[in-house]
Design a protein around this nucleic acid. Structure first.
Length: 131
RNA sequence: AGAGUAAGAAGUGACCGGUCGCUCCUGAUUCGUUUCAGGGGAGGAAAGUCCGGACUCCAUAGGGCAAGAGGCCCGGUUGUUAAAGCCGGGGGGAUGCUGCCACAUCGGCAUCAGCGGAAAGUGCCACAGAAAACGAACCGCCCCGGUCAAACGGCGGUAAGGGUGAAAAGGUGGUGUAAGAGACCACCGGGCGUUUCGCGUAAGCGGCGCCGCAUGGCAAACCCACUCUGGAGCAAGGUCAAAUAGAGGGCCCACGACGCUGCCCGCGUCUUUCCGCUCUGACAAGGGCGGAUUGGGCUCCGGGUAGAUCGCAGAGAUGAAUGACCGGAGCCACAUAUGUGGUGAACAGAAUCCGGCUUACUCACGGCUCUCGUU
RNA sequence: GGAGGGGUGUCUGAGUGGUUUAAAGAACCGGUCUUGAAAACCGGCGUGUCUUACGGGCACCGGGGGUUCGAAUCCCUCCCCCUCCG
C-alpha cells in the first residue's frame, strides 16, 4: 500500500496525459487486441510516433447517468496516469468502462487495470521488485 | 441536556490543511504548444424544459380579425412595458366533522382551490324518471260527468305526499281551500337597488328600501366582457475563409488574321476566327442557321461550403476540465478517563445567461412538541 | 442544447364526456369439415382482486392528482418512447 504511494512520487512532474488523435481510435480498434477486467475493457495497439497514450470511451448505453459517466471516466484516467510508467514503451490503449465499475474505488480500478495489462503482456515486470 | 414528531413549511450552508494531477486566465520564460509563479474552477436542484425575460436574426405605416394566455382585494418581494410566480393579511365560497328534534339554513372546528360572466347566445345533462328546463301531472288528492255503487271518462284543478335521479323548481309553522299552492301571513333564506346610510384603502360586510321571489347544473364545453401577447431561436446570429465547380474582369502563351518583308524566324497590332449550307446581291459586302475552334497558365472580384473564430461570462469546453492519496474537525457503532472500526454523505455533473415553477434528495444549523435539570 | 409528436388486452390498433358490453383484426384455445393438416365456418379468449366454487362484483386505457353527477376522453404534474434542427 505504501509502496504504491512511493511509486506515485516517481512520476515525473512534467508528465502530461496525452490523448489519441481521432483516426487512431479506428486503427486501435481494428487491431482487435483486447483484454477484459471486471471494471473495464481494454484495446491495445503499438503505434509509431506515440508512446503510451490512452483514450477513454464512455458510452451512454453502458452508464446512463451523466454523473456516473464522469466518475468512470476519471477513474480510468487516474488509473492510467498512476500506472503509465509500468507499461511497455510504444503501446497505446483505449479504455472502456464496464457496468462493474460502479461503486469501485481508485485502488480497485488500478488493480483491475494491472491485471488486464499483464494479460495483454504490456506490463513491464522488471519493476515488480519495488512493489 | 435528552427524546420525538411534522410540514418532506419557508430559509442558510455543502468543512479545513498538505502532496500529486487536470483545465482556463494573467505575467515572465522558451525554438516551441516548453518551463515557472500567481489566480479562477459544478448545483440547490446544474434535471424536467412547464413559464417569462435578456440577447440575436427575420418581419413590421396605422388599425382590425384570427390564435394563445390570465383570473377576488390590499401590501411586500423577484422582475418588469405589463403580467405570471412567491410571501403576509383580508373577503367571499366549496367539502368534511360537529351543535340545534328535523328541514331550508345558521353557529363552531378543520381542510382545500385553477374564486369575471350561466336572465348575451349556442350546446350538453346518459340511464332512471311524468317531467332535466320558452314552468313539469306517472301514482295520489279534489271537482265534474257517468253508474244503484264502481269501473271508466275530462284539450278539468292541484306541486301537500309517494316514487326516479348527481341534480326536481326556497324552508318551517299558520291562514286558507273542494283539494291545494307565496294565494296570503310570521320568521328564516334569496334577488334587485342604495351616484350622497354606516364601516373598510379595496374585495366586501351590515343597515335601509323594493320584489312573494318560476327562470337548475356544466364556462379545466363553445363562448361573452376585460387585460396581455409579432415570429423564430445560441444548432439564434456575426466575421474570416481552403479545395472543387461555375460566372465576370485583367494579363501572358498558343492558334488565326493583318502589317514590318518575296519567304522563314522575329517583332508589333487586333481578337473571336475558320468551314459548310442558305438569303439579298453582278462582284465586293452583309444577314441567318449549323459545326469546329474559344486551348493552357497566372491574378483579381462576388457569393459562400468544409473549417476556424466571435457570440462566451470573476467556471467554461467542443474527442468536451473538478480527480486521487494522506491527515484533522464532524457524524455513526462498539466497549467506554479513552480507544478501535466505519463513514466522510443523498439526489446528482454546467454548455448563452438570468428569474419563477415542478420533480429527486442527504447532513448540519434553525423551527415545533414532550421530559428533566439550573437560574 | 433546442423544437415537435406519441403511450389503449400478447401484437396491430379504433374510440374526443354517458351502462361506450374498451370496437375490429392478428395470435391463441375448442368445435365442424378431413385419413391427417391447411384454408373456410362457428364459439371462446385482457390483467388484478373479492367471492368455497359456478356465476358474478369492483378496479385498471403509462403513474399520480384535480374539474364534473360521471373522465381512456377535459386540466395540471411526473415517467417512458420516437422524430427533426450543425
Amino acid at each position: 500500500m505504501t509502496g504504491a504511494a512511493k511509486t506515485t512520487g516517481t512520476v515525473p512532474v512534467s508528465f502530461r496525459l496525452p490523448r489519441l488523435a481521432a483516426p487512431l481510435y479506428r486503427v486501435v480498434f481494428d487491431q482487435q487486441r483486447t483484454a477484459h477486467g471486471h471494471t473495464l475493457a481494454m484495446w491495445v495497439a503499438e503505434l509509431p510516433d506515440s508512446d503510451r497514450r490512452v483514450g477513454v470511451v464512455v458510452s451512454k448505453r453502458v452508464i446512463r447517468d451523466a454523473c456516473d459517466r464522469n466518475r468512470a471516466k476519471r477513474l480510468l484516467r487516474e488509473a492510467f496516469r498512476l500506472s503509465r510508467h509500468r507499461l511497455k514503451p510504444g503501446v497505446s490503449v483505449i479504455l472502456v468502462p464496464r457496468v462493474g465499475i460502479g461503486g469501485k474505488t481508485c485502488r480497485e480500478v488500478m488493480r483491475d487495470f494491472e491485471r488486464a495489462c499483464r494479460r495483454a503482456k504490456i506490463w513491464d515486470k522488471t519493476m515488480d521488485g519495488t512493489g
